[in-house]
Amino acid sequence: MKRPITELKPHEVLHAAIWIERRNTAIYENYAQMFRGYDEEIERAFVEMAEEETRHGEALQALYRRKFGDLACSVTDEDVQDVIEAPVLEDGEVFITDSMRLVDALRVALKAEQRAAGFYRQLTSLTSDPDLCAIYSELAGVEVGHEALIEAKLTQYQSAARG
């Protein structure tokens, strides 16, 4: 049965966060598949985002091992009620009106990371458990780092487009 993230223990939150990154890998791979044969540049961007999410997942796995060692956990993203960091293509008619540009694809990822960072930050203010608070802060910090990476890519792309 799905539970709100606030009901999870610290190690369960971090374990779910690992699976969220894996889920996002699959979602970006799916977006890349959607754009295959349609727009090579955007397909490549989503493939890179999928690879980035895989790296995020591996980094969170390393964090889990440091904090909790070999502690077993079966909680995944499927067990969490909340929608966290899900990258969403908002425009249902994107292929019909041919309205997606590379910058829009990057913004999909940026919005997902921003939502995640905001979500974890909000949780730090809602919990009184110091261990949970620490985990949420750490996750918020990780997502802020992801945000910064994507913002740098966006800036790089926009400068290249202007120049």
Binding site: E90, D91, I96
Partner: peptide
């Protein structure tokens, strides 16, 4: 019809 059905907001297409 090249839509994203999960993001459908109007009947136009």
């Amino acid at each position: 019809w090249m839509l994203l059905p999960y993001k459908l907001t109007r009947n136009t297409y």
